[in-house]
Amino acid sequence: MISQDVLKEISIQTKDFSLADEVALLEKDNLTDGAVVTFTGRVRNNNNGNSVTSLTLEHYPGMTEKSLAKIINQAKEQWRIGRVKVIHRIGELHIGEQIVFVGVTSKHRQDAFAANEFIMDYLKVKAPFWKKEQITEAGKTSENWLDAKTSDTDKAELWS
């Protein structure tokens, strides 16, 4: 079973998030941690030479939360970290919009840096999200599902 505590650290949502608000929550009444590391992923305007206009994010409700909880718990076992927050948006997202947020706090910076990168790397290959991109080529609009990148799999394997 997934504990309620770790579920509070995960949010799958269509709405945007505020980096400032998320940092404030990681810091609120948290006087023991000196390090706050955040990562924000955004929609690029290009992919494989194509001009991307928007993305649609699909996920597997239930499994998404379970897999992210597992990843967060693994990070907590491996590093001495304080607070964690993972936000992933779903639905239609346009160029420049925020897609994903990972925030980690720790006493000293090394643990927060490493845990944040680990969570992102594992999210990339284990959490059930899929991106479909809408592209414009020579004035024509089409859409296609993104292929997984072997570079992401290789990167995640470096942690094991």
């Binding site: 994010l57 597997y60 499994m63 897999s67 897609i99 994903v100 990339k124 290959v125 999200f129 292929d147």
Partner: peptide, 29 residues
């Protein structure tokens, strides 16, 4: 493939009441 929200391989056993999912490699983040 996943059974009851956990990624599994093909030899994983299934029983009545299980939810089995099939999907392409994931591309979130």
């Amino acid at each position: 493939s996943a059974v009851n929200h956990d990624m599994v391989d093909g030899s994983h056993l299934v029983k009545s009441g299980d939810e089995v999912a099939f999907f392409p490699p994931v591309t979130g983040g």
